[in-house]
């Protein structure tokens, strides 16, 4: 059992190496596609730095993969409000990300007041609050306040969306 879980955890960190490698490859591939007319005023050109960065990423990816296979492990970050004893709580994180995505989809069409309300209310719910009505009131109040605060105080007009004309 324990060897299985450590094996799986090790594999999860290999994903990081994979991501680094992919990022490095992407940077290199993009750099190759650039055209550089040689010029005296710019001997370095736009390609050099991407090549170095891409190489750095790929080297890190390889070394990290070796490090992980040899049993190296990144130390998860602690914090005053973090308990590392239990595994990641996806039941909290995924709905939270869901509320975030919903906000992205709604913001231009429905406007900030609606999408912001959805975002805050959804996040609070995902994080485990069960005072539906109180949370709803706080969400609407926050969204309205920021909408008017940005408009009147900072001169930034957040999208009004569906409520155009009402607000």
């Amino acid at each position: 059992m324990s060897s299985l879980t450590t094996g799986l955890k090790g594999r999860a960190e290999l994903g990081v190496a994979l991501l680094l490698g992919a990022a490095g490859a992407l940077v290199l591939w993009d750099a190759i596609g650039l055209v550089t007319p040689y010029s005296k005023s710019d001997p370095v050109g736009p390609k050099t730095v991407p090549y170095i960065v891409g190489a750095l990423l790929i080297i890190c990816a390889v070394l990290l993969a070796i490090n992980v296979l040899r049993g190296g492990k990144g130390e998860a970050e602690g914090g005053e409000d973090v308990e590392l004893g239990h595994p990641a709580d996806w039941k909290t994180v995924l709905p939270l990300a869901g509320a975030f995505v919903l906000n992205i989809l709604l913001i231009d069409w429905a406007g900030w007041v609606i999408s912001g309300t959805v975002l805050f209310w959804g996040s609070v719910l995902a994080l485990g609050s069960r005072h539906y009505v109180r949370d709803g009131i706080i969400s609407v109040a926050l969204s309205l306040l920021t909408f008017y605060g940005f408009y009147l105080g900072l001169g930034i007009a957040l999208p009004a969306g569906l409520l155009e004309g009402v607000l």
């Binding site: 409000d81 906000n103 912001g116 996040s123 609070v124 719910l125 706080i138 940005f150 930034i156």
Partner: peptide
């Protein structure tokens, strides 16, 4: 302060801030 409000607040203001720079979803 209950955590749900704290962390939902962080996400809320993060979104608001990032969006208000260019007003682009």
């Amino acid at each position: 302060l209950p955590r749900p409000y704290l962390y939902a607040g962080i996400l809320f203001f993060a979104t608001l801030g990032a969006y208000s720079v260019n007003l682009q979803a």
